[in-house]
Design a protein around this nucleic acid. Structure first.
Lengths: 218, 218
DNA sequence: CTCGACTCCACCCAGAGGGGTGAGGCACGG
DNA sequence: CCGTGCCTCACCCCTCTGGGTGGAGTCGAG
């Protein structure tokens, strides 16, 4: 009886990346793909929330999932080793804080433990390569962080808003912007937005049908 | 024998606006719609070049048309009453400088005169309403100038570049930006670009087939 | 006549953004 | 060990952007 897992993130590439990773474990997990603005409208055992562009302090995305009666358990799936982010997420009531550095089978094992009622924190230090991830712009040579920042720019956020969203310092954001612009060959925000639009960095809004919420398809 | 007229501008809405205006004169003019980055690839009697977002001093768009062996005559179609713009255009060798304030039948008459070999400058003062025009964003309440500036923003141009493109002062550009942002409800350039993208203000690139230039369809 | 809309422009000011430099830590490969 | 790449951050400096204020002229409608 496979665990039913909803993969939650606003970028199709991101959830596709996780889904393909779990492909060889279909006897243990059954995967549903959702974006972060969707409501889970059918029962799932676990919602696996990928933090790409969503790792804000207040855990907004996570809170919505925690409050969803269709969702039994919520896990955060992240590359962040930030202890305070982890503690806040756990305080919110998540059942798992899972590293993107877990191998596929370790991830599935962790999900199985979560399903059994344990609270799982994967303690992988940054010594393992980033396995669990794909992101828009990866093929164009952007690092995960650069891509994340560019996605947020493409959403129209200011640097200050990106600071809030990512819990990084303004100086880090500017560094990523600089390196990112160099890689994609733009020198202004407008051009960056246009690049992002052309390269699939807008929020993916059309993914799953939501028969009971008419306005959320906009 | 109708005069064959190519309507030239980068925005589909703009050339559609002219085409619909000329609809009741099909016995006198035969209309082809092109965008400004297309090459005229079949013989036309007159290329009618609409200056929306294209009214730069150096007449780049016009020059290309003047050099095209398929184009017999080139006319500029504009709302500008700027005398120096007009003089430069005439010096480039255009056969007509036609106001968007002309009625449809007056426009057709002017085109007929041009076809007969005359150089036509329509001298309409700004006392007549703007007839010959449609533009992206018009339905959303943007004035022609506001829309023009926003289209250029949506192309990723800086204010300085927009100054060059429109031959207006930086202060006028800023005024239009302010009023435009107020109308569309944005407060940053990124948001304005996104608004423009969502409202059809990107350059229209897919219009006519160009069988002999493989790369220009991108 | 007044008023509002549109076009065009000036000037002031603050902050948002982007270029640069440098640094520390970690991992990995040669 | 060193170099490279990635992440994270600091500081400096300058330009670009966008908010404000005001003004002039033209036109059309009331």
């Amino acid at each position: 009886m496979p665990i039913r897992v909803a993969l939650v993130n606003d970028y199709e590439v991101v959830v596709h990346g996780i889904a393909s990773m779990l492909r060889s474990h279909t006897h243990r997990v059954e995967v549903v793909e959702l974006n972060a603005s969707s409501h889970v409208a059918e029962p799932v055992d676990i919602a696996l929330f990928d933090t790409f562009t969503q790792s804000r302090d207040d855990g907004t995305g996570v809170v919505r999932l925690l409050e969803n009666p269709y969702v039994d358990k919520v896990c955060v799936y992240t590359w962040s080793t930030d202890r305070s982010l982890r503690e806040s997420a756990l305080r919110l009531g998540i059942a798992g804080y899972l590293s993107k550095r877990l191998s596929a089978s370790d991830l599935v094992s962790a999900l199985e433990q979560v399903h059994k009622g344990e609270v799982v924190v994967s303690d992988e230090p940054a010594r393992l390569p980033l396995i669990g991830g794909d992101w828009p712009g990866r093929e164009e040579g952007l690092t995960a962080r650069e891509a994340e920042v560019l996605c947020l720019i493409t959403q129209g956020l200011t640097n200050a808003q990106i600071v809030e969203r990512t819990s990084l310092s303004i100086n880090s954001i500017k560094s990523y912007i600089r390196s990112c612009y160099r890689k994609i060959g733009v020198d202004s925000r407008s051009r960056a937005v246009l690049w992002g639009v052309e390269h699939g960095m807008q929020l993916d809004r059309v993914r799953v049908s939501e028969p009971d919420i008419p306005g959320s398809r906009d």
